[in-house]
Design a protein around this nucleic acid. Structure first.
Length: 281
DNA sequence: AACATCTCCAACCGCGTGTAC
DNA sequence: AGTACACGCGGTTGGAGATGT
């Protein structure tokens, strides 16, 4: 047995909304509110529309403070960063952009931003359409990650971590070291920054709000990764009662791909704004 | 100018989730 | 605990307008 229809489809109007319908809906909601019942609303408002259609029209177009028009560079950055960390959860992304709707952001991403990031001109699109399709539908594939890591404030990709940032991390045969897990500690609250100055250190700090999303992001890349905000208490908060972080340092490399363990809690506590990437073999 | 193709975005659809009973 | 229903979300579609040939 299928799902019961939300309304009598034979008796509801579909397609674009007329200005008259918009006025009717807007005036009704401003006067009476939604009453917490979208299904009953169209009848009460005298509209021959499905409740879902009314809800969508109100949320995406008629409600106050909706922002239309061009997205700013800041908005672009926020969308990219969030898309890369949490994927296509448009309602969550929209919550970070006042005045923008999930539908708006979704459309913007699908029609413009995605192409902008991939650097594809209109003439290139046709020939690349097939390969794009594959990449785009799987946001965590390396090609898109690589593109996105160029954005300021974006988390590092696995290849950045393994090959670029920590160039000293090599097997004795010269091959990059691969790790099973990745532990990161860092920084004061609500900052987002990452940098790599000398290839041997990686400064990274994220606000506590973002931790779960980033952890999810890294796990999508096949890394068992744990990113902690704060230093002292955070591991406990995330269920790591006996964390023994491996501090990246060339001198700690014992030449077989493993790094020596040392207790750095005191150091870390004293350098809250200089978090480090640490590997757990 | 005519036609084909592309772009954009509003709107639709189906499904998962929450909640009331 | 099970069921029915409404809401909200994300994927997809349709069509108008823009652009290319």
């Amino acid at each position: 047995m299928g799902r019961a229809p939300c309304c009598d489809k034979a008796n509801v109007k579909k397609g674009p909304w007329s200005p008259e319908e918009d006025i009717k809906l807007k005036e009704f909601i401003e006067k009476y509110g939604t009453g917490g019942n979208w299904i009953a609303l169209p009848q009460r408002a005298g509209l021959k529309r499905c409740g879902k259609s009314c809800r969508l029209r109100w949320l995406n177009y008629l409600r106050p403070n909706i922002k239309h028009g061009e997205f700013s560079d800041d908005e672009d950055r926020i969308i990219c960063s969030l898309f890369a960390t949490i994927g296509s959860r448009w309602s969550i992304i929209a919550a970070q952009l006042p005045g923008r709707t999930d539908n708006d952001i979704k459309n913007y991403w699908n029609t413009k931003l995605k192409k902008k990031l991939l650097g594809i001109s209109p003439s290139q699109r046709k020939s690349q359409q097939q390969s794009q399709q594959q990449t785009i539908q799987q946001p965590f594939q390396p090609s898109l990650e690589t593109t996105l890591t160029g954005l300021e404030g974006f988390p590092l990709s696995s290849s950045d971590i393994f090959n670029s940032v920590h160039q000293g991390g090599h097997e004795s045969n010269g091959a990059p070291v691969h790790y099973n897990s990745l532990l990161m500690f860092g920084g004061s609250d609500h900052q987002q920054s990452c940098s790599s100055s000398d290839g041997n250190s990686n400064q990274i700090s994220y606000g506590s709000r973002d931790v779960e999303a980033y952890n999810e992001y890294y796990s999508q890349m096949g890394l068992e990764a744990y990113l902690f905000s704060g230093v002292g208490e955070a591991p406990l908060e995330f269920g790591f009662e006996d964390v023994k972080p491996l501090v990246f340092n060339n001198s700690n490399n014992n030449n077989n791909g493993f790094f020596n363990i040392e207790d750095t809690n005191s150091t870390m506590r004293g350098n809250r704004n200089q978090g480090r990437v640490m590997y757990y073999h």
